[in-house]
Design a protein around this nucleic acid. Structure first.
Length: 475
RNA sequence: GUCCCCAUCGUCUAGCCCGGCCUAGGACAUCGCCCUUUCACGGCGGUAACGGGGGUUCAAAUCCCCCUGGGGACACCA
């Protein structure tokens, strides 16, 4: 598709003003997939020119998130604040050409005019009053504005949206350099994308309106245009732009809630892109199959349920050893002392894989195998550890004591015998035992649980459970 | 207020570009059944959509126009 001479170079350019947003991740992912598909380069650029809001901490969060998801970059992170002279040089070029000019309007003045326009329901727009200012350079701090062509049209050929037309009369003169010499977004991107030889600008479609202005800057600078691809927004359930009030929107939260990176990647890839009816994709398949041909142009509602389903899918299929590693911190989170009885993990994890949708759930289910004192779920206790079950449990303990071996199959035999003799169903016995042994109503198969726990701990817990049963004075 | 984008089941989407194979397919969720003398997993089946109106055409989810609805942008934020 793309010849070797025009090697694909794309970039993800977040502004470090907060956490790494799920929408940002999707943009990063599409960039990354496109780069990897074309064996091109993926570059990370930090757009930190908003000095009041950018933080080091945020940069760190972004890098961590990218690493967690395996979105590795080939160059960077490049920081815009490290290259101020680059923007200044470019601004000077335009100033010299007469394609830009100094503007001495103060932010306060501009703000007041804008507010007034909005109040009068008029289009807020810079009126160009400094545009034709002649004479000596201003003696007070001045911003540099771009002299946007006021006639004709600018056409954006977009890989996702198609051909989009804008009247230049619609555009006003944007500020390129603030009065302190720091570039604004629209100027910074153009300079950097040009200098960094970016071939495809893939970003959120909230930037589509900025594109004609940027195209004019490319023209003025004499730089070739990259290809553009504007991805539709990710929406919340109420169809407004996905934000914090819709729930978790930061990658960190998904990590902390026990999601697997491959689940998030898979989910986000399918949000706005498809490959026929396929739902589950490995990273390699994604790289192989990704193309803008199949990127959808309409916005998509974020569906946490489906993400959860994918996560459970990947947990079901996951490699035990890897899951064991990933689970570790979550076990600690459940109060299991670090590095404890790690030898049980190879048995515990497979037993829990089909009943855990997240690593948090898995850790919750696993905790009872590692702790001395289990946490008893109160409703479960009330429901299943009842006086009428006491004799059955006592009988069971008796039999287990004399069981030849403490294996799952032997357990089954013991249970069978009790059931036959007492004429009860397994469900009658299994749930109370489950609660006694794990403190919960959901656990691996009950025989399996006993085998993993072993004879001593199993019997101990059963006895303890009997002690918890209220005495049967009413009967 | 101006400009831009978008419009298939509740949700993600296939189909649309190159009209007929669409009595519109898949997935998540939901409902029901089955499997399991345990909790899950799993299997099977059901409910559910082309926003409205005009064209064009023998034929429109598919092409054109309008309306409506939703989203976004209009900063010395990005």
């Amino acid at each position: 598709m793309t010849s070797a001479s025009e090697k694909v170079r794309v970039r993800f350019a977040p502004s470090p003003t907060g956490y790494l947003h799920i929408g940002g991740v999707r943009t990063a992912l599409f960039n990354w997939l496109f780069a990897r598909h074309h064996k091109g380069q993926f570059i990370l650029r930090i757009e930190d020119t908003d000095r009041s809001r950018s933080t080091e901490e945020s940069i760190q969060t972004i890098l961590d998130g990218m690493r967690w998801l395996g979105l590795d970059w080939d160059e960077g992170p490049v920081r815009q604040m490290d290259r101020l002279n680059l923007y200044k040089e470019h601004a000077d070029r335009l100033l010299k050409k007469g394609a830009a000019y100094f503007c001495t309007c103060t932010p306060e003045e501009l703000d007041a005019r804008r507010k007034e326009a909005q109040a009068k329901k008029r289009t807020p727009r810079y009126d160009g009053r400094c545009r034709d200012h002649k004479g000596p350079l201003p003696d007070r701090p001045a911003a540099v504005r771009f002299k946007t062509p006021q006639t004709g049209q600018t056409i954006v050929e977009d890989l996702v949206k198609g051909r989009v037309q804008f009247d230049n009369a619609q555009l006003d003169d944007l500020i390129m350099l603030r009065s302190d010499g720091v570039p604004t977004y629209n100027f910074g991107v153009v300079v950097d994308d040009s200098v960094m030889a970016i071939t495809h600008v893939i970003r959120g479609d909230d930037h589509l309106n900025n594109t004609p202005r940027q195209i004019q800057i490319y023209h003025a600078l004499g730089y070739p245009l990259p290809k553009f691809a504007h991805l539709s927004m990710i929406l919340g359930p109420d169809k407004s732009r996905l934000s914090k009030r819709h729930g978790a929107t930061s990658v960190t939260e998904y990590h902390d809630q026990g999601y697997l990176p491959e689940a998030l990647i898979n989910y986000l890839a399918r949000l706005g892109w498809s490959h026929g009816d396929q739902e589950v994709f490995s990273r390699e398949e994604l790289i192989e199959k990704f193309s803008f041909e199949n990127v959808v142009s309409s916005p998509a509602v974020f569906n946490p349920e489906k993400l959860l389903w994918l996560n459970s899918h990947y947990i079901h299929e996951g490699d035990t050893g890897r899951l064991a590693d990933l689970l570790q911190p979550f076990l600690v989170g459940e109060g299991v002392a670090e590095g404890r009885d790690a030898s049980l993990l190879p048995k515990v994890i497979p037993a829990l894989q089909t009943r855990s949708r997240t690593l948090v759930e898995m850790a919750q289910g696993a905790a009872c195998f590692f702790k001395d004192a289990i946490e008893m779920d109160a409703p479960a206790q009330a429901k299943f550890l009842t006086p009428e079950i006491r004799p059955l449990l006592m009988e069971l303990i008796e039999r287990l004591n004399t069981a030849s071996a403490f294996t799952a199959s032997e357990m089954e035999t013991v249970f069978k015998n009790v059931m036959d003799e007492k004429g009860i169903k397994l469900s009658k016995l299994a749930q109370p035992v489950r609660v006694a042994l794990t403190g919960r109503t959901v656990s691996p198969g009950i025989y399996e649980v006993m085998e993993i726990l072993g004879k001593d701990r199993s019997l101990q817990r059963l006895k303890k459970a009997i002690d918890l049963i209220p005495s049967d004075i009413t009967k």
